[in-house]
Write a protein that binds this DNA or RNA. Structure first.
Length: 194
DNA sequence: CGGCAGATACGCT
DNA sequence: GCGTATCTGCCGT
């Protein structure tokens, strides 16, 4: 029985983001089970200029203002999807961007979803992993306690296992230390940046 | 391996 | 119009 996600993720984004490291995503896709471990995350909050929720609750960002444990999927650069886990209390726009995952099962299917590619480039970026898991705009607002895409919480990692850095690919609030990744993990998108 | 341009849609100014 | 929470291919070292 899956625990209630909305209650467990009812915390600020910068607290939820490192908490989600090591947790697992289970995607049922065409009768197959794809499983992956979250290895890199970033926090976004409505008080933060870099967040889509900064300008308020709009059609695009409304999911971020809903209950925790749901998926916020956005489309960017005219071709890419990225996925976030909504966190915090309802009415407050916050979410955690999943930046990288490590495949644990169903790697062949993920590879097929990625034009036959293999290795870290399969899932070491926010738009790469959505492609590998076949997640698109139809998943915006999806409840992560339900099939075909579930989030399974795992015990928190030790602080010594987690590296904290500034976020990637943004032009505002670039100094906030809201990017988190698992130390020495091969699937982290840009391990060098600190 | 690092840097840069191009692809390409959409929300906001 | 413009900028974007990105990726890929192509170039040079």
């Amino acid at each position: 029985m899956q625990a209630d996600l909305s209650h467990l993720l009812d915390v600020p984004a910068e607290v939820a983001a490192p908490r989600l490291l090591g947790c697992e995503l289970i995607r049922e896709f065409e009768g197959q089970e794809l499983i992956a471990k979250i290895v890199e995350t970033e926090a976004y909050d409505q008080i933060d200029e870099a967040s889509h929720s900064f300008r308020g609750n709009t059609t695009r960002t409304s999911v971020m203002f809903g209950p925790a444990g749901f998926l916020y999927v956005y489309f960017t650069y005219g071709m890419h999807y990225c996925m976030n886990v909504v966190v915090g209390v309802p009415g407050h726009g916050a979410a955690v961007l999943i930046r990288a995952i490590e495949p644990l099962a169903g790697v062949e299917i993920m590879s097929a979803n990625r034009h036959g590619l293999a290795g870290p480039i399969l899932t070491n970026g926010p738009a790469k992993l959505t492609q590998a898991l076949a997640v698109d705009r139809n998943f915006n607002g999806h409840n992560l306690a339900e099939s075909p895409l579930k989030l399974v919480l795992k015990p928190s990692l030790a602080g010594s296992e987690i590296i904290t850095t500034t976020r990637i690919g943004i032009s505002r609030a670039i100094d906030k230390p809201w990017r988190f990744y698992i130390k020495n993990n091969q699937f982290v998108s840009k391990p060098n940046l600190a």
